[in-house]
């Protein structure tokens, strides 16, 4: 049974105005197969948490730990984390000119598995996954994310999630910028990965809309760099009605 543990995580970022503390003691445990939703206002540090888990060099961990099955994730490089089974679907996926989706997927798959996938089954897997996500096969020969619309970029993230089969995935606002149809397609992809591989999911979102399609086991309210409240799916419904105002008061009180 795989488990991802985040303990008392404090994270700083260097800005032009000096060092800024963004995460202020995050505690979170995700077990295999669990779906955790993190909801919070703009600027509360949700993406910072996602990037820190993935190992983005801009963020400095000043205190706390991240453990994957007891292994110290913070000591791993970005690519080592991915090979250990971590995945980040980015809020703003990056364009890679000159590198086709096909080439990129094959290179990533080979790196993650430690060996090249067998050509025949791999091509079938890629084609199948693209069809499921309603991606035109022409995308395979396009450069990664280059000229993709917002929705196409998000599908491309989920395509990678389905093909690379990580143990834990952080989905950073995968729902933002999607119309209803795209939201359904992308949610189905996430649910497939969840059902097929027992994926543990940290679903970062701003809105409750995606929670109609992806059912969380736990909901965490993220405010001012830490978890302000947690509960079951019913907490999301309450946020839908009341918004984050309640927490803002608490936030200013602590500052």
């Amino acid at each position: 049974m795989s488990v991802l543990e985040i303990k008392n995580l404090h994270v700083n970022v260097e800005t032009d105005q000096g060092t800024r503390e963004i995460l202020r003691g995050v505690d979170l445990t995700i077990r295999e197969g669990e779906i955790h939703a993190i909801m919070g206002p703009n600027g509360s540090g949700k993406s910072t948490l996602a990037y820190t888990i993935a190992g983005h060099p801009k963020y400095t961990v000043v205190e706390g730990e991240i453990l994957l099955d007891g292994e110290n994730v913070l000591e791993m490089s970005v690519d080592e984390r991915a090979r250990a089974g971590m995945f980040l679907a980015m809020q703003y996926p990056v364009e890679i000119p000159g590198v086709t989706v096909t080439n990129f997927l094959r290179t990533a798959k080979t790196a993650i598995d430690g060996e090249a996938p067998s050509i025949r089954t791999w091509l079938k897997d890629v084609r199948g996954a693209m069809t499921n996500l309603k991606m035109d096969s022409a995308f395979a020969e396009r450069n990664v994310n280059e000229g993709f619309s917002g929705g196409e970029k998000k599908r491309n993230e989920i395509l990678q999630l389905e093909l690379l089969k990580p143990k834990f995935a952080v989905l950073d606002e995968t729902d933002s910028g999607l119309d209803v149809d795209a939201l359904k397609v992308v949610s189905e992809g996430v649910n497939r990965a969840h059902a097929n591989t027992g994926l543990g999911i940290l679903l970062i979102t701003h809105y409750t809309r995606i929670l109609r399609y992806i059912k969380p086991d736990f909901v965490h309210v993220f405010v001012a760099g830490k978890i302000a409240e947690q509960g079951g799916p019913e907490l999301a419904d309450r946020l839908e009605e009341e918004g984050y105002d309640r927490y803002h008061v608490a936030e200013s009180a602590t500052q």
Binding site: S77, D79, L88, V94, V99, N103, F104, A108, Q160
Partner: peptide, 29 residues
Amino acid sequence: DDEQLFYLQARGIPEDEARRLVVRGFLAE
């Protein structure tokens, strides 16, 4: 672009290979 590097590494591709991929892609045209 360091963000390109991060993206590729976040998919398990080691840094040196990620660099090669980007530069080769750029010049291959």
